[in-house]
Simulated assay, not measured.
Amino acid sequence: MGEEHAVAAETGPMRYSVVELAPVAPGGTRTAALRRALAAAVEAEQLGYDRIWYAEHHHTVGYASADPVPLIAAAVGRTDRIRVGSGAVLLNHHSAFTVTERFMMLQSMAPGRVDLGIGRSSAGPVVDQALRRDRGSRPVDDFPAQVQEVLGHVHRAFPQGHRFATLDLTRAVDGVPEVWLLGSSVASARLAARLGIGYVFGAHIDPATTQAALDQYRAGFVGTPFGSGAPRAILALHLAAADDEDLAHRLTWPARALRAGGRDRPIPTVAQAAAELGSDERARPSSIRGPVIPPQVAGTAEALREQLEPLVRALGVTEVMVQDMINDVELRSRSREIVAKVLGSIDAPAS
């Protein structure tokens, strides 16, 4: 992980959050998956999670969360404290105005509790085209400009004379959502730094780039009115926990089976994943070893603390966002309970 960052001596409790994918179980329904996703918000609040974000996955069999906005709206009505948001709105499929307007509406419903997490991703050429309104021209990669446009709407920051300067989506709204950029590359880290907003790095997507991306984010950060004025980095990890080390490791198998055998299907059970994966894939490590972060991290409470405490200190992050692909309700609840206790017991470096 390289040299540890110089951090202030003062420390505080580690924040911990969760991104909810609403996984569909084999033989299950999307209705059941969405109900579990909303119940996850209540549970996360009870366990002390700082925020829960819902994902955007278009035309998938395995995930019921196609649009995070309805889930956010429903979740804020079931909870009192926890921040609720998107992980992420895929801005390449939407207009900046539409996204901002919808999240301003959510902000009106739950002032001070809404996060607008922005990212981009492809759902495949056919779905990408179906999502587009204008199919007569070639798509343009204008993601940085779109992010800036969202910030312009959220903070009424368009310069005088700009064609959108007269638009006011903040009228009669109490506050604005926090805007975060989600990514898994150095380029996304640089964009978040230049705009002065919070950054979430998906270490489960590209573990090898974690250190470089977070270094670039902090080194290039410019304080702007769009953020807190200081770098705020969240480390996203695929985490599975259990009271038994072997069970914790096996809880990573469904995610491995999806990577190996394709994602266009319900999330496999542990038993199904075991039947699909070869012995080498089942045995692939799920623990952090030195500078190597595996795509899936697993362990008991004691093992996870031993792995995560030096990791967050070396990377200088003060919040970890958890993702998992556990369909069994009891096993998932226990996993998230253990993860909460582990992360809540770690003193994070002050950013």
Rank of each mutant, 00 (worst) to 15 (best):
G152Q: 06
R263Q: 12
R336L: 04
V339W: 09
T60G: 11
T318R: 15
P266N: 10
V24D: 05
G62P: 12
A242K: 02
R263M: 13
V126I: 15
G198C: 10
R81P: 13
A55E: 10
A240G: 00
M14F: 14
D246T: 14
D80K: 14
A110I: 12
D328Y: 02
L277P: 13
V176N: 03
R113E: 06
G262K: 04
E319L: 04
V200P: 09
M321W: 09
I293M: 09
L167P: 01
D244C: 05
A240Y: 03
H162R: 02
I82S: 05
P225W: 08
P268M: 02
E306N: 03
V320A: 09
G278P: 13
R120Q: 06
V76P: 12
A96D: 09
T100C: 08
D324K: 00
L116Y: 12
Q272Y: 12
P268F: 06
Q107D: 13
A40I: 01
L169K: 00
V126W: 12
H238I: 00
A350M: 13
V114K: 02
Q307G: 03
S137A: 10
R81V: 15
M325P: 05
E281T: 14
P349A: 02
A208W: 13
T11A: 03
L331S: 12
A75L: 10
E306T: 06
M105W: 11
P125Y: 13
G183M: 05
S287F: 07
D347H: 09
P70M: 04
D134Q: 06
A241V: 02
V292L: 10
A73Q: 12
A172Q: 04
T224N: 05
T252S: 14
F97A: 01
A66N: 01
A241F: 04
